Amino acid sequence: MMIIDVREAYHRALEDFGALVHRIGPEQWDSPTPCVDWDVRDLVNHVVGENLWAPELLGGRAVAEIGDAFEGDLLGDDPIKAFDTSAVAAMQATGGAGSLTRVVHLSFGDVSGREYVTELFADALIHTWDLARAIGADERLDPELVEACTVWFSGAGNGYRPAGAGAERQGTSSEADAQADLLASWGRQA
């Protein structure tokens, strides 16, 4: 059970990610991230791709119909503008009440719009930490969003991990806070 409205949680997480995108220095785009094999540009490109998928999938199209439209470099010469444009489209697509009741046709099967938006939220939240770590920004995530993601992922994680959502859970100390524990559940070492 999500503590806050999942659409609000997603929009807040995406806004937090976007604030960091706007802080990326020209020399940081090729910096490594906690995501194996991804530098900062790859990470932002991934989130832009997720953003571009949202209107299509919530609009009723299937992954097979869209094909490889969102493969490759989606950032072009202006990565910040590419992110901003994609974020607006994703927030518009996920903002209405109907977005939660739609059936979304993903590559592994159909899910509710609520489940899909929750996946988008979790992805944006965890990648916010990844980007903060990569560019040396404040790594503290919004505690309310951490709690909401923890509640969802504690029930859904075992189903998503085999599909590639997060790496193997990392160990934490007994003093680990909620954020460190959530990140560990996604395979991150805070």
Rank of each mutant, 00 (worst) to 15 (best):
M1F: 14
M2C: 09
M2Q: 15
E8V: 12
Y10L: 13
H11F: 06
R12W: 03
A13V: 10
L14P: 05
L14M: 13
A19Q: 15
V21W: 01
I24R: 00
G25W: 00
Q28V: 01
P32E: 14
T33S: 07
T33L: 02
T33E: 02
C35D: 07
W38N: 04
W38H: 09
D39T: 08
D39M: 03
V40G: 00
V40T: 03
R41P: 00
D42Y: 09
D42M: 12
L43A: 08
V44A: 08
N45C: 13
H46I: 03
H46W: 11
V47R: 06
V47C: 01
V48I: 11
V48C: 04
E50Q: 14
N51V: 10
N51D: 12
L52N: 05
W53P: 05
W53V: 03
E56A: 14
E56I: 09
G59R: 11
G59Q: 13
G60L: 01
G60F: 08
R61T: 07
V63Y: 12
I66E: 10
A69Q: 15
E71I: 01
D73R: 06
L75I: 10
G76W: 07
G76T: 10
I80H: 08
A82C: 07
F83H: 11
F83T: 01
T85Q: 10
S86D: 04
A87W: 00
V88N: 08
A89V: 07
A93M: 04
S99H: 08
T101K: 02
T101H: 13
R102F: 00
V103P: 02
V103I: 15
V104H: 06
V104R: 10
S107Q: 15
F108Y: 15
G109Q: 11
G109V: 13
D110V: 14
D110S: 13
D110T: 10
V111S: 01
G113I: 03
R114N: 08
V117L: 06
T118H: 01
L120N: 04
L120F: 02
F121N: 05
D123C: 05
A124E: 06
A124M: 02
A124L: 03
I126Y: 02
W129L: 02
D130S: 05
L131G: 09
L131T: 09
R133F: 08
D138R: 04
D138S: 07
R140Y: 12
R140D: 14
P143D: 08
P143T: 07
L145G: 04
L145C: 04
V146S: 07
V146H: 03
V146M: 05
E147M: 13
A148I: 07
C149Y: 05
T150R: 04
T150P: 00
W152L: 07
F153I: 05
S154I: 01
S154T: 14
G157R: 00
G157K: 00
G157F: 01
G159I: 02
G159C: 06
R161G: 09
P162T: 15
G164N: 03
E168I: 12
Q170Y: 03
G171V: 09
S173C: 04
E175D: 13
A176M: 06
A176K: 04
Q179W: 03
A180N: 06
D181L: 10
D181T: 14
A184D: 10
A184T: 04
S185K: 14
R188V: 12
Q189F: 13
Q189M: 11
